[in-house]
């Protein structure tokens, strides 16, 4: 099968190569002999890659600490189940699915991927594969940050850095829906994105940027502040709306 592989941790994304890798073995998957209990094979239609994946130890070594290169990166997917492993429940062959795959196994920048059925959700027929792959990591990151780790409740305030970004825009929307007061930071030139696609500000006062009833505020980070290392720092708000 066609796949993107990485072999050198020092090379970064520039070390990615398009190559041929063996197809997953469906017969072995369905037998008792493999260590693949509960796995399915998914024909990948759309795949997503997270920017710093190649810095994660799990990209290079498996759970036993053994070198697993050449590794296939990309762990976000939407596709169609083509084979079921022994013991798999909840999914059927031909089913549209989406989700994230195990960080320590070969990923989704390939024509097929082996993934645990318990990591996949059905992809509704009216949600296309591109969207399915695009919301798995961004949506789950936002959801788990806000609701599981942050235990967000209505009326609380949420400060979202990079509010116009792939994850940030999800955070803004989910936090707003949950009744939070959302403050976004980002580049000035991304403000319109936050406004139109992430709905950062539906009811903001232009005269009282900090404490409006239920709206959002946008703070623009200067390029100088962005490039500094260490704790986030930003300029005085350039514009509010």
């Amino acid at each position: 099968m066609k796949a993107i592989v990485v072999t050198d941790p020092a090379a970064g994304t520039a070390g990615m190569k398009l190559t041929q890798r063996p197809d997953p073995d469906a017969a072995r998957l369905a037998s008792l002999s493999g260590a693949s209990y509960g796995d399915v094979i998914v024909e990948v239609h759309a795949s997503g890659f997270t920017g710093n994946e190649l810095e994660w130890p799990s990209t290079w070594t498996d759970r036993l600490g053994c070198d697993r290169t050449p590794s296939i990166p990309g762990h976000e997917l939407a596709g169609v189940v083509t084979a079921l492993g022994y013991g798999t429940t909840g999914l059927s062959v031909g089913q549209r699915v989406f989700g994230l795959t195990d960080w320590t196994r070969d990923g989704t920048l390939a024509e097929y991927v082996v993934v645990e059925a318990r990591n996949l959700a059905p992809l509704p027929g009216d949600v296309d594969f591109t969207v399915g792959a695009g919301i798995a990591m961004t949506g789950l990151t936002a959801w788990q940050g806000l609701f599981e780790h942050g235990r967000l409740r209505a009326g609380q305030s949420v400060l979202v850095h990079g509010a116009a970004g792939a994850v940030g825009s999800m955070v803004v929307q989910l936090a707003r829906e949950a009744g939070a007061y959302v403050i976004g930071t980002g580049r000035t030139d991304h403000r319109q994105t936050a406004l139109t696609s992430a709905r950062t500000c539906s009811s903001i006062s232009t005269t009282m940027p900090w404490k409006t009833s239920a709206g959002s505020t946008w703070f623009s980070m200067s390029s100088e502040a962005r490039s500094r290392s260490g704790p986030p720092a930003w300029s005085e708000p350039e514009e509010h709306w």
Partner: peptide, 29 residues
């Protein structure tokens, strides 16, 4: 809090439903 995301089907379903009904807009480039 520093956390690693896990793939949770129920949450994926919640997210997909919000995309379908227009509550959640995607940011695909």
């Amino acid at each position: 809090v520093d956390f690693v995301v896990v793939s949770v089907p129920d949450q994926l379903g919640e997210i997909a439903q919000r995309v379908r009904d227009g509550r959640l807009r995607t940011n695909i480039g």
